[in-house]
């Protein structure tokens, strides 16, 4: 188990290093200097930037100093927001985005798994077809379409829920619904198919031959095995949700990091774009790592098999 964790950890470090290097290379390859010229950068900002990026140094020194600042979680200043650093922006925006993301993944997991299990247990029945139709629609409708639809119908036309901002739990309903539908559909489809496969396994037949009740068989014997593959895709889903927050926060005017990020893209605020990208990438890679560890802890077989990749 320790070897497994160590191996995963090293992979994670390499991944992070590659991401940071890519950002650095892209940064210095931006045509002209991104940090001055007619971008209306004030002089104080200019000085901050130069000291952060060490523009007077040769590239390899710049690279090493950049790596160092990333390790110390210092992402540098912003061009467009005077006196704000990327860290300041992250400090304001990220908690909100994090909350949105976590509520979304929880909602998606709970509803997706439930839907998938019910569909599998009622295999080829009416409920199965309904659940899977909903799921196919869920993965087919982009979240920006769904959110405008929700705002127009539930908030504007029916006036049931607040259409925007992030003030109360009630405000969370629409953005979370818009963001969670896609992942929920993916989880439901995966849960259903793994559940169906697990239910044909010999050990399920064996459990039935022991005279256990169907309920007990599902809970004790099928569920854990069926949910293992679901755990492995949580990392990927988180990445999708996180990028989804960019869109959702823009549409619902939620003051999270995603909205700052989109604004920084539109204003070409390079340090913010770079810093946020690195921060989010590292965040996701760490999450992926944690998910893998949890998987390893839950599956007794991992301790023996050190096979990776697949």
């Amino acid at each position: 188990m320790l070897r497994y964790i160590l191996k995963r950890f090293l992979t994670m470090i390499v991944t992070i290093w590659i991401i940071v290097t890519i950002t650095f290379v892209l940064m210095i390859s931006i045509p002209g200097s991104p940090l001055n010229e007619e971008r209306g950068t004030s002089e104080s900002v200019q000085r901050n930037l130069e000291s952060y990026y060490n523009l007077d140094q040769p590239y390899h020194i710049q690279y090493i100093l950049y790596l160092k600042s990333i390790v110390t979680l210092d992402f540098g200043p912003s061009i467009k927001q005077p006196n704000q650093t990327v860290n300041d922006l992250l400090g304001q925006g990220f908690p909100i985005s994090f909350e949105l993301g976590m509520v979304t993944i929880l909602v998606a997991l709970l509803s997706g798994v439930t839907l998938g299990i019910i569909a599998a247990l009622k295999h080829n029945g009416f409920i199965d077809y309904m659940a899977m139709s909903v799921a196919v629609l869920g993965i087919s409708i982009p979240n920006f379409v769904l959110s405008t639809l929700l705002i127009q119908q539930l908030a504007v036309n029916l006036n049931l829920l607040p259409p925007a901002t992030w003030a109360s739990p009630l405000h969370m309903v629409l953005p979370v619904a818009a963001l969670a539908t896609g992942p929920m559909a993916i989880i439901a489809r995966l849960t259903r198919s793994t559940m169906l496969e697990v239910l044909t396994q010999d050990y399920i037949k064996m459990a039935r031959a022991k005279g256990l009740s169907p309920w007990k068989i599902v809970i004790k014997h099928a569920l854990k095995n069926a949910l293992m593959p679901v755990i492995t895709i949580i990392g990927t889903l988180l990445a999708g949700i996180l990028t989804g927050t960019f869109v959702i926060e823009k549409i619902f005017a939620i003051p999270g990091m995603g909205r700052y990020f989109v604004e920084s893209i539109n204003q070409r605020d390079y340090p913010v774009i770079m810093g946020t990208t690195v921060f989010y990438s590292v965040f996701l890679v760490v999450m992926l790592f944690l998910v893998d560890i949890i998987y390893g802890l839950l599956d007794p077989r991992i301790k023996l098999h050190k096979k990776e990749g697949e």
Partner: peptide, 14 residues
């Protein structure tokens, strides 16, 4: 495996 871990939409945005 390493590339697989990189959140691809972020790289694409970049």
């Amino acid at each position: 495996e390493v590339l697989y871990g990189i959140p691809y939409l972020l790289v694409v945005i970049l």
